[in-house]
Design a binder for these strands. Structure first.
Lengths: 340, 340
DNA sequence: ATATTTAAGTAGATCGATGCAATACTTTTC
DNA sequence: GAAAAGTATTGCATCGATCTACTTAAATAT
């Protein structure tokens, strides 16, 4: 319980605190003999480096913040794990918060992170995030914020999937199947990612024979299985029977599969299902799920690189980086044929 | 970029730094008029509370650490999210690390957290974690460590599912189906959770007509879908055809479903499949997966409560808390009948 | 009118590592 | 042999909030 400080170490090693501090940081100005003596003293006394003290003096914390919505969605879990890995590799520790797509909660978490003096924040913005409230919290300390997977401002760095391209690729595939109609189900209504996916789908379907009505999916739900089930139920109960159901994400698709079966409809046979993200599970489902891979690990890597650059040089112009998606065609759409 | 400190605030408000500090902490010794003046100055200057400075003085950090293996498994994701929630509710921020079931990585993360002066650590120990190396890191600062879901020492607090009971309940259900043989697939070989689940299964099968050979599953794999696929492949390739395959976890079961189908075996018809955890997906699979719910949210809540108690009073005896599991019978076992 | 209590506020040391400026102590140079 | 150059080391102010001990002013008691 008796805290060992650098002072104690230096006294035990017969040097000054300054010298011990230099040893700690591996200065070349200290000869082997001395630094060995200091290190030995540290080991013997059970010295623990106090990062808070160092951070306060150097006014940086070697800590990064990450706010995501919900890691029970494996897509976000993958993003999170890779960001943690990249942060650790760069010598940073990671503070996390889960906003659960709630801007209030997100604001609290941002505030905490700012108070904790984080050097940078990865923000996967909650649905409906606006620039002003975020700036109000963040600008007081001028912490750089990187927008992850969704954006709400052109003034801040952003890394995410190329959602428009993803939508286009998926739309072209769906129309090549000969489907006559498609709907989009689920996802956070007020998010750039969803807006972009719709835009991609619309441009991809343009000129094809597929009727895609984005307004159909206006009354949306959440970005999880429950949202998928509800979404399908709502559409089918309206008497609308699309040839292809496009899920906002694989997490949503899981609920769509379940709800279809509750109604004795078999995905991939009675109705095609396609989705975005391509989490590991997509391939393991029956039928395997057609999905546009959006590579959370690549996004996370790029995001870490970009945020660390920004920390080094805050004068850079806002950067945007889009990760190219890849369509993974599987049985949930491959076997499509018109209903009899 | 010009940092605003309490000094600046107090000067602007025409009081001393001490008074401003008292206002910050809502002391009743300061009358409304004064504290309003101080708060106004804070808002006007854009003051940001510096937790590091406060923490150093008070020698506590209001930060907790959480190390888990891999949140792509929704079970751990649920645990993590609930712990974050409980920590925030209690005014703590959360530092996280993902060990990926690697003790080396875990050691680094523990070290970082100790240096960050965390007030307590939730540790979901990586496979093969031993007491000595953990103590070597942690004892220097006497941070309390709570073992989460797996344990390696009786000397530290522990919260987890009642794995033995879970195994027993599952075994009784499987034997009630009339199965003649069962195997366990997947999971971290050197972990208390797996050992206990085996023990529970063995005692549950004792006296029944089910042949359950734990040694069969000795050469185990990882705690994810890939591990499930490999595990099934290995068992079936040995020419062993069990009536029931018990997955270490739902994540593993997902891989088992996939591998069975690759071999034209239908889970729930050609072979029963059962599992542990009961993540949300279990119910949505086809066939819905029989699983023993282990309630990560309850575990997390209890763990948070226990760790906070320990922080308050370190003299308490080591506590153990087991969360009662519940068997959820679904079609993956319900429809079992002897192979023809 | 004085003593006592309470309220309101403050000075200054403190937490532990950092890093500048300065000082010992060698070694080299002229 | 003194000056210069280099090496090894140190003293001390600093980061920003906290908190004990103290002062002053006002209210209440005797």
């Amino acid at each position: 319980m008796n805290k060992v400080t650098l002072n104690d170490v230096s006294r035990a090693a017969g040097v000054s605190r300054s010298t011990a501090s230099l040893v700690l940081r591996g200065s070349s100005r200290i000869p082997e003999a001395t630094s060995d003596r200091v290190r030995l003293a540290m080991a013997e006394l059970g010295y623990v480096y106090n990062r808070h003290a160092a951070n306060m003096r150097r006014s940086q914390s070697m800590t990064l913040g990450l706010i995501v919505t919900d890691i029970r969605n494996p897509y976000f879990a993958g993003l999170t794990m890779t960001i943690e890995e990249a942060a650790h590799e760069a010598g940073y520790t990671l503070l996390v918060g889960y906003s659960r797509d709630d801007v209030e909660r997100q604001a609290l978490q941002l505030e905490t992170m700012v108070q904790q003096q984080v050097d940078g924040i990865f923000l996967l913005p909650a649905e409906g995030t606006e620039l002003a409230p975020v700036c109000q919290i963040v600008d007081r300390s001028s912490v750089p914020v990187l927008q992850l997977a969704r954006y709400f401002s052109e003034e801040m760095d952003y890394v995410g999937p190329d959602n428009i391209l993803a939508g286009q690729r998926l739309a072209r595939h769906v129309s090549s199947l000969g489907a006559a109609s498609a709907v989009l189900i689920g996802g956070p209504e007020y998010s750039s990612a969803r807006t972009e996916r719709i835009k991609g789908l619309e441009t991809g379907f343009a000129g094809s024979s597929v009727a895609f009505d984005a307004s159909l999916s206006a009354a949306t739900t959440t970005n999880n299985a429950a949202g998928g089930s509800e979404g399908v139920a709502r559409v089918l109960d309206q008497g609308i029977w699309p040839d292809c159901i496009i899920a906002y994400s694989d997490a949503v698709a899981l609920g769509i599969y379940a709800e279809l079966r509750r109604r004795n409809l078999e995905p991939g046979r009675d109705v095609s299902v396609a989705s975005f993200d391509d989490i590991a599970m997509a391939e393991l489902l029956l039928p395997p799920l057609t999905s546009v891979a959006t590579y959370p690990e690549l996004i996370a890597r790029k995001a870490a690189e970009m945020l660390l650059n920004r920390i080094r040089d805050s004068s850079l112009d806002p950067q945007r980086s889009l990760i190219e998606p890849a369509l993974k065609i599987r049985a949930s759409t491959a076997q499509w044929r018109p209903r009899t």
